[in-house]
Amino acid sequence: MEHRITLRVDGTERAVTVDSRTTLLDALRERLGVTSPKKGCDHGQCGACTVLLEGRRQLSCLTFAVAHDGDQVVTAEGLGEVRGDGGLHPVQQAFIEQDGFQCGYCTPGQVCSAVGMLDEAEAGHPSHVTRDLAPPGAPDSPAPLDDGEIRERMSGNLCRCGAYVNIVAALRETATASRGAS
């Protein structure tokens, strides 16, 4: 069943016709030519297809495009565009410096996940390893982000090359820099 929908992809309105069966990931990759989000498992088990959907990190393989008419999607390709400068996002820069990837296939998903994760932590969201769920102070004060927190929060993004320790180093650097600046 064909549907005409509009997505705002990396800051640009894109009209596209999709089958109701077309996932958001396939709509991006096969209909719109936006191949930055990757298909690793197609079942929500690897994280390679992570995009920022309406501002939050989500898996584009487990949702139908037709359900997202009018929604905003940001991929790793558009992070710089959406920030306005067109350059690399600090997370992306840190990935390059720390060599947070090898084959690069999981990388756009890792990057989008990291950007979403940092926002969640900034908003005070706890994680599975957060010791104190209800610390004194405002509930929306930033959550702690030590290495254990970063690892847990990033665990939805698998990397077979085994770049995990370098990704954590990159995000430690980014988180420290952004919190220092704010």
């Binding site: 990759r29 030519g33 191949t35 930055s36 989000p37 990757k38 298909k39 991929t75 790793a76 390709e77 992070l79 710089g80 690399l88 992306q92 990935f95 390059i96 410096e97 060599d99 990837f101 690069g104 296939y105 990388t107 756009p108 990057v111």
Partner: peptide
């Protein structure tokens, strides 16, 4: 040396087999 293909890979624009237009 930083990877020469780094910027392409962190933005997802490096083309893998399925992605060649």
């Amino acid at each position: 040396l930083e990877r020469l293909d780094g910027p392409a890979k962190v933005t997802g624009t490096a083309r893998y087999a399925f992605e060649h237009p």
